[in-house]
Computed example of a mutant assay.
Amino acid sequence: MALTPEQLERQSRHILLKEIGGPGVQKLAAARVSIVGAGALGGPCAMYLAAAGVGEIELWDADTVDRSNLQRQVQFTEVDTGHLKVDRLAERLNASAPDCGIIRQARRWSEADALSGDVLIDGTDNFETRFALNRVAHASGRPLVSGAATRWSGQVSVFASGVETGQPCYQCFVPEAPPMAEACEDVGVVGPVTGIVASHMALEAMKIITGAGRPLMGQVLILDGLSGVSRAVKLRQDTDCPVCSA
Protein backbone atom coordinates (compact mmCIF):
# COMPACT_ATOMS: atom_id res chain seq x y z
CA MET A 1 0.00 0.00 0.00
CA ALA A 2 1.21 3.50 -0.84
CA LEU A 3 2.05 5.79 2.06
CA THR A 4 1.03 9.43 2.11
CA PRO A 5 3.66 12.19 2.41
CA GLU A 6 2.47 12.76 5.98
CA GLN A 7 2.92 9.08 6.85
CA LEU A 8 6.39 9.04 5.31
CA GLU A 9 7.39 12.06 7.35
CA ARG A 10 5.91 10.66 10.56
CA GLN A 11 7.69 7.31 10.12
CA SER A 12 10.99 8.67 8.83
CA ARG A 13 12.98 7.36 11.81
CA HIS A 14 11.60 3.87 11.30
CA ILE A 15 12.33 4.00 7.59
CA LEU A 16 15.99 4.69 8.42
CA LEU A 17 16.25 1.38 10.28
CA LYS A 18 17.37 -1.42 7.96
CA GLU A 19 15.32 -3.94 9.95
CA ILE A 20 12.11 -1.98 9.26
CA GLY A 21 12.59 0.40 6.33
CA GLY A 22 9.84 1.27 3.89
CA PRO A 23 8.54 -2.32 3.58
CA GLY A 24 8.24 -2.65 7.36
CA VAL A 25 6.37 0.63 7.63
CA GLN A 26 3.96 -0.61 4.97
CA LYS A 27 3.44 -3.83 6.93
CA LEU A 28 2.65 -1.79 10.04
CA ALA A 29 0.15 0.30 8.09
CA ALA A 30 -1.60 -2.86 6.90
CA ALA A 31 -1.58 -4.52 10.33
CA ARG A 32 -4.53 -5.09 12.64
CA VAL A 33 -4.00 -5.48 16.37
CA SER A 34 -6.49 -6.36 19.12
CA ILE A 35 -5.66 -5.14 22.63
CA VAL A 36 -7.69 -6.52 25.51
CA GLY A 37 -7.34 -4.11 28.42
CA ALA A 38 -6.85 -0.34 28.03
CA GLY A 39 -5.18 0.27 31.37
CA ALA A 40 -1.58 0.43 32.55
CA LEU A 41 -0.31 -2.12 30.00
CA GLY A 42 -2.72 -1.94 27.08
CA GLY A 43 -2.96 1.85 27.04
CA PRO A 44 0.74 2.79 26.65
CA CYS A 45 1.21 -0.21 24.35
CA ALA A 46 -1.56 1.13 22.10
CA MET A 47 0.00 4.60 22.11
CA TYR A 48 3.32 3.26 20.84
CA LEU A 49 1.69 1.05 18.20
CA ALA A 50 -0.51 3.87 16.90
CA ALA A 51 2.51 6.19 16.76
CA ALA A 52 4.40 3.46 14.88
CA GLY A 53 1.77 3.55 12.14
CA VAL A 54 -0.27 0.41 12.88
CA GLY A 55 -3.29 0.61 10.61
CA GLU A 56 -6.01 -0.66 12.94
CA ILE A 57 -6.21 -1.10 16.70
CA GLU A 58 -9.17 -2.76 18.41
CA LEU A 59 -9.56 -1.79 22.07
CA TRP A 60 -11.50 -3.85 24.61
CA ASP A 61 -12.25 -2.49 28.09
CA ALA A 62 -15.45 -1.97 30.08
CA ASP A 63 -13.96 0.26 32.79
CA THR A 64 -14.05 3.99 33.36
CA VAL A 65 -11.04 6.05 34.41
CA ASP A 66 -10.53 6.26 38.16
CA ARG A 67 -8.24 8.72 39.91
CA SER A 68 -6.22 5.82 41.32
CA ASN A 69 -5.36 4.83 37.72
CA LEU A 70 -3.45 8.02 36.99
CA GLN A 71 -0.31 6.97 38.89
CA ARG A 72 0.51 4.51 36.09
CA GLN A 73 -2.02 4.87 33.24
CA VAL A 74 -0.25 7.82 31.65
CA GLN A 75 -2.61 7.88 28.68
CA PHE A 76 -5.21 9.51 30.95
CA THR A 77 -5.39 12.79 32.85
CA GLU A 78 -7.53 14.18 35.67
CA VAL A 79 -10.20 15.39 33.25
CA ASP A 80 -10.69 11.81 32.01
CA THR A 81 -11.90 10.45 35.35
CA GLY A 82 -15.36 8.96 35.14
CA HIS A 83 -15.18 8.48 31.36
CA LEU A 84 -14.86 5.20 29.48
CA LYS A 85 -11.24 4.20 29.02
CA VAL A 86 -11.70 3.07 25.42
CA ASP A 87 -13.28 6.40 24.47
CA ARG A 88 -10.58 8.57 26.02
CA LEU A 89 -7.76 6.32 24.80
CA ALA A 90 -9.20 6.33 21.26
CA GLU A 91 -9.26 10.13 21.30
CA ARG A 92 -5.64 10.20 22.46
CA LEU A 93 -4.56 7.76 19.73
CA ASN A 94 -6.36 9.64 16.96
CA ALA A 95 -4.81 12.92 18.11
CA SER A 96 -1.30 11.56 17.63
CA ALA A 97 -1.99 9.14 14.76
CA PRO A 98 -5.02 10.28 12.74
CA ASP A 99 -4.51 7.54 10.14
CA CYS A 100 -4.96 4.77 12.69
CA GLY A 101 -8.39 3.16 12.62
CA ILE A 102 -9.68 2.60 16.16
CA ILE A 103 -12.36 0.06 16.97
CA ARG A 104 -13.88 0.77 20.40
CA GLN A 105 -15.29 -2.15 22.34
CA ALA A 106 -16.55 -0.64 25.61
CA ARG A 107 -17.29 -3.94 27.26
CA ARG A 108 -15.51 -6.82 28.89
CA TRP A 109 -14.14 -9.25 26.33
CA SER A 110 -15.31 -12.86 26.54
CA GLU A 111 -14.22 -15.94 24.64
CA ALA A 112 -17.37 -15.78 22.54
CA ASP A 113 -16.37 -12.38 21.14
CA ALA A 114 -14.53 -12.30 17.82
CA LEU A 115 -11.24 -10.40 17.76
CA SER A 116 -10.33 -8.54 14.56
CA GLY A 117 -6.56 -8.38 15.04
CA ASP A 118 -3.88 -10.46 13.35
CA VAL A 119 -1.86 -9.98 16.56
CA LEU A 120 -3.52 -10.33 19.97
CA ILE A 121 -2.26 -8.38 22.98
CA ASP A 122 -3.15 -9.27 26.55
CA GLY A 123 -3.13 -6.22 28.81
CA THR A 124 -5.48 -7.69 31.40
CA ASP A 125 -4.95 -8.40 35.08
CA ASN A 126 -6.96 -11.58 35.65
CA PHE A 127 -6.16 -15.19 34.88
CA GLU A 128 -9.61 -16.11 33.57
CA THR A 129 -9.21 -13.70 30.66
CA ARG A 130 -5.55 -14.61 30.12
CA PHE A 131 -6.42 -18.29 29.78
CA ALA A 132 -9.32 -17.49 27.43
CA LEU A 133 -7.15 -15.27 25.21
CA ASN A 134 -4.54 -18.01 25.10
CA ARG A 135 -7.11 -20.55 23.92
CA VAL A 136 -8.38 -18.20 21.21
CA ALA A 137 -4.85 -17.34 20.05
CA HIS A 138 -3.88 -21.01 19.79
CA ALA A 139 -7.09 -22.13 18.07
CA SER A 140 -6.98 -19.28 15.54
CA GLY A 141 -3.25 -19.49 14.78
CA ARG A 142 -2.41 -15.99 15.99
CA PRO A 143 0.47 -14.80 18.17
CA LEU A 144 -0.36 -13.58 21.66
CA VAL A 145 1.76 -10.84 23.25
CA SER A 146 1.39 -11.07 27.02
CA GLY A 147 2.54 -8.78 29.81
CA ALA A 148 2.09 -8.53 33.55
CA ALA A 149 3.31 -6.26 36.34
CA THR A 150 3.00 -6.19 40.12
CA ARG A 151 4.93 -4.51 42.92
CA TRP A 152 8.42 -3.82 41.43
CA SER A 153 8.51 -6.57 38.82
CA GLY A 154 7.14 -7.33 35.38
CA GLN A 155 7.24 -9.93 32.65
CA VAL A 156 6.71 -10.08 28.90
CA SER A 157 6.42 -12.98 26.48
CA VAL A 158 5.04 -13.98 23.10
CA PHE A 159 3.01 -17.19 22.93
CA ALA A 160 2.82 -18.65 19.44
CA SER A 161 1.71 -22.25 19.88
CA GLY A 162 -0.80 -21.86 17.09
CA VAL A 163 1.76 -20.29 14.76
CA GLU A 164 4.88 -22.43 15.13
CA THR A 165 5.01 -26.14 15.96
CA GLY A 166 6.49 -26.93 19.33
CA GLN A 167 6.05 -23.46 20.79
CA PRO A 168 4.60 -23.24 24.31
CA CYS A 169 1.34 -21.46 25.02
CA TYR A 170 0.49 -19.32 28.04
CA GLN A 171 -0.98 -22.30 29.89
CA CYS A 172 2.30 -24.19 29.49
CA PHE A 173 3.84 -21.30 31.43
CA VAL A 174 0.99 -20.91 33.95
CA PRO A 175 -0.92 -24.22 34.16
CA GLU A 176 -3.57 -22.82 36.52
CA ALA A 177 -4.38 -19.65 38.37
CA PRO A 178 -2.27 -19.31 41.54
CA PRO A 179 -4.44 -19.74 44.65
CA MET A 180 -3.13 -16.47 46.10
CA ALA A 181 -2.87 -14.42 42.89
CA GLU A 182 -1.86 -10.84 43.62
CA ALA A 183 -3.67 -7.89 42.07
CA CYS A 184 -2.02 -4.49 41.95
CA GLU A 185 -5.02 -2.96 43.72
CA ASP A 186 -4.17 -5.19 46.70
CA VAL A 187 -0.36 -5.15 46.75
CA GLY A 188 0.55 -2.08 44.68
CA VAL A 189 2.67 -1.57 41.60
CA VAL A 190 5.33 0.97 40.65
CA GLY A 191 4.06 3.10 37.76
CA PRO A 192 7.21 3.07 35.60
CA VAL A 193 7.36 -0.74 35.74
CA THR A 194 4.02 -0.95 33.93
CA GLY A 195 5.38 1.52 31.35
CA ILE A 196 8.47 -0.62 30.77
CA VAL A 197 6.36 -3.75 30.32
CA ALA A 198 3.92 -1.94 28.00
CA SER A 199 6.79 -0.65 25.86
CA HIS A 200 8.22 -4.16 25.58
CA MET A 201 4.81 -5.44 24.54
CA ALA A 202 4.61 -2.85 21.77
CA LEU A 203 8.14 -3.73 20.68
CA GLU A 204 7.29 -7.43 20.46
CA ALA A 205 4.18 -6.66 18.41
CA MET A 206 6.23 -4.51 16.02
CA LYS A 207 8.81 -7.29 15.61
CA ILE A 208 6.05 -9.79 14.82
CA ILE A 209 4.47 -7.47 12.25
CA THR A 210 7.66 -6.32 10.50
CA GLY A 211 9.71 -9.49 10.82
CA ALA A 212 12.54 -7.60 12.52
CA GLY A 213 14.70 -9.58 14.94
CA ARG A 214 13.19 -12.49 16.85
CA PRO A 215 10.18 -12.09 19.12
CA LEU A 216 10.18 -13.48 22.66
CA MET A 217 8.70 -16.81 21.56
CA GLY A 218 9.62 -19.65 23.91
CA GLN A 219 10.99 -17.13 26.40
CA VAL A 220 9.71 -14.90 29.15
CA LEU A 221 11.53 -11.67 29.92
CA ILE A 222 11.49 -11.00 33.67
CA LEU A 223 12.14 -7.45 34.84
CA ASP A 224 13.21 -6.51 38.38
CA GLY A 225 12.67 -2.80 38.93
CA LEU A 226 14.40 -2.70 42.30
CA SER A 227 17.70 -4.17 41.10
CA GLY A 228 17.49 -2.87 37.54
CA VAL A 229 18.22 -6.38 36.26
CA SER A 230 16.30 -8.27 33.59
CA ARG A 231 16.70 -11.86 32.45
CA ALA A 232 15.16 -14.12 29.84
CA VAL A 233 13.98 -17.55 30.91
CA LYS A 234 13.37 -20.29 28.34
CA LEU A 235 9.94 -21.89 28.19
CA ARG A 236 9.09 -25.32 26.86
CA GLN A 237 5.87 -26.80 25.61
CA ASP A 238 4.09 -28.86 28.25
CA THR A 239 3.29 -32.22 26.66
CA ASP A 240 0.30 -32.49 28.98
CA CYS A 241 -1.02 -28.99 28.27
CA PRO A 242 -4.78 -29.13 27.65
CA VAL A 243 -4.56 -26.25 25.12
CA CYS A 244 -1.60 -26.79 22.80
CA SER A 245 -0.71 -30.47 23.23
CA ALA A 246 -4.12 -31.95 22.55
Rank of each mutant, 00 (worst) to 15 (best):
E128P: 01
F131D: 08
L133F: 05
N134K: 05
A137M: 11
H138I: 14
A139T: 11
A139Q: 15
A139I: 02
S140H: 11
S140I: 00
G141S: 10
R142F: 02
R142Q: 06
P143G: 03
P143F: 01
L144F: 02
V145T: 03
V145L: 05
V145C: 07
S146T: 14
S146Q: 10
S146E: 09
G147Q: 09
T150M: 12
T150P: 00
R151E: 14
R151F: 00
W152P: 05
W152D: 12
W152I: 04
W152N: 10
G154H: 03
Q155D: 05
V158P: 07
V158Q: 12
V158T: 14
A160G: 12
A160S: 15
G162V: 03
G162K: 09
T165D: 13
T165Q: 08
G166T: 07
P168H: 13
F173W: 15
F173C: 04
F173S: 09
V174K: 10
V174P: 01
V174A: 02
V174C: 10
P175M: 09
P175F: 03
A177I: 08
P178R: 06
P178Q: 06
P179N: 08
M180P: 00
E182K: 11
E182H: 01
A183L: 09
C184Y: 00
E185I: 02
D186Y: 00
D186W: 00
V189H: 01
V189F: 02
G191D: 01
G191R: 07
P192A: 05
T194A: 04
T194F: 00
G195R: 07
I196F: 02
I196K: 01
V197W: 00
A198C: 03
A198S: 14
S199C: 12
S199Q: 06
S199M: 03
H200P: 00
M201Y: 01
A202H: 06
A202K: 07
L203C: 07
E204N: 09
E204A: 10
A205Y: 04
M206S: 02
K207S: 06
K207V: 06
I208R: 06
I209M: 13
T210C: 10
T210K: 11
T210V: 12
G211F: 09
G211A: 07
A212D: 14
A212W: 13
A212V: 12
A212T: 13
G213K: 09
G213R: 05
G213V: 11
P215I: 03
L216F: 11
L216G: 08
M217A: 15
M217Q: 15
G218V: 05
G218Y: 07
G218K: 10
Q219C: 05
Q219I: 04
Q219M: 13
V220K: 11
I222S: 11
L223H: 14
L223E: 11
D224L: 00
D224W: 00
D224F: 00
L226H: 12
